[in-house]
Deep mutational scan, measured.
Amino acid sequence: MDVFMKGLSKAKEGVVAAAEKTKQGVAEAAGKTKEGVLYVGSKTKEGVVHGVATVAEKTKEQVTNVGGAVVTGVTAVAQKTVEGAGSIAAATGFVKKDQLGKNEEGAPQEGILEDMPVDPDNEAYEMPSEEGYQDYEPEA
């Protein structure tokens, strides 16, 4: 019985440690998101679009440190934060509304985080759909 109880105690310690790591990862992701939003706020009209992409990228980098179902929630929060940063930029006159959601080359930025393969159960990952990809044929 002692062996059984000791095993359960060790398992509990492992769960607590994993929860603490997840909590730490979420806190880091939130900190990076805040950094990115402050970065966007300090940019001029020309830099705002690039700044919004930076927020998304920093958040995406930190999301990889967070495991399990938390990833889905962090990704949703990050996307809403990026959308909010863009709205703030438009409201303050840093950028025109028609410039939001495009990178410096004018290509749409939507789907940055949505296409990231995420499995809350950590069982399997699927690649994003290939609808947006084109076949590449090298020139002879």
Rank of each mutant, 00 (worst) to 15 (best):
M1W: 00
M1S: 00
D2P: 01
V3P: 00
F4C: 04
F4P: 00
M5H: 12
M5P: 00
S9A: 03
S9Q: 07
S9W: 15
S9G: 03
A11I: 15
E13H: 10
V15H: 01
A19C: 06
A19Q: 02
A19V: 15
K23H: 03
G25A: 14
G25S: 12
A27L: 13
A30D: 00
A30P: 02
K32A: 07
T33R: 01
T33N: 02
K34L: 14
K34R: 13
E35G: 06
V37R: 01
V37C: 07
V37I: 04
L38Q: 03
L38E: 06
L38I: 05
Y39E: 03
G41I: 06
K43L: 13
T44W: 15
K45N: 03
E46V: 14
G47Y: 08
H50M: 15
H50A: 03
G51K: 15
G51H: 01
A53Q: 00
T54Y: 11
T54H: 08
A56M: 08
E57S: 02
E57K: 09
K58A: 05
K60L: 13
E61K: 05
Q62A: 10
V63L: 15
N65I: 07
V66P: 02
V66T: 05
A69R: 15
A69L: 01
V70Y: 06
V70R: 02
V71F: 14
V71A: 06
V71D: 03
V71I: 00
V71N: 04
V74P: 04
V74E: 02
T75K: 08
T75A: 08
V77H: 05
V77Y: 11
V77F: 14
A78D: 00
Q79W: 15
K80V: 04
K80W: 14
K80I: 10
T81A: 11
T81K: 05
V82A: 02
V82L: 15
V82M: 04
V82F: 04
E83Q: 06
G84A: 02
S87A: 10
S87E: 01
S87T: 00
A89D: 05
A89C: 11
A90F: 09
A91T: 02
T92M: 09
T92C: 04
G93P: 06
F94D: 11
V95C: 13
V95N: 14
D98C: 10
Q99Y: 10
Q99P: 08
E104Q: 00
E104N: 07
E105H: 13
G106F: 03
A107D: 08
A107R: 13
A107C: 06
P108Y: 04
Q109V: 05
E110C: 09
V118E: 03
V118Q: 14
D119R: 14
P120L: 03
P120A: 05
D121A: 06
A124Y: 09
Y125D: 10
Y125R: 04
E126R: 02
E126G: 05
M127A: 13
M127D: 00
M127I: 11
P128I: 08
P128R: 10
S129Y: 08
E131F: 05
Y136Q: 15
Y136I: 01
Y136V: 11
E137M: 12
E137D: 07
E137S: 11
P138H: 07
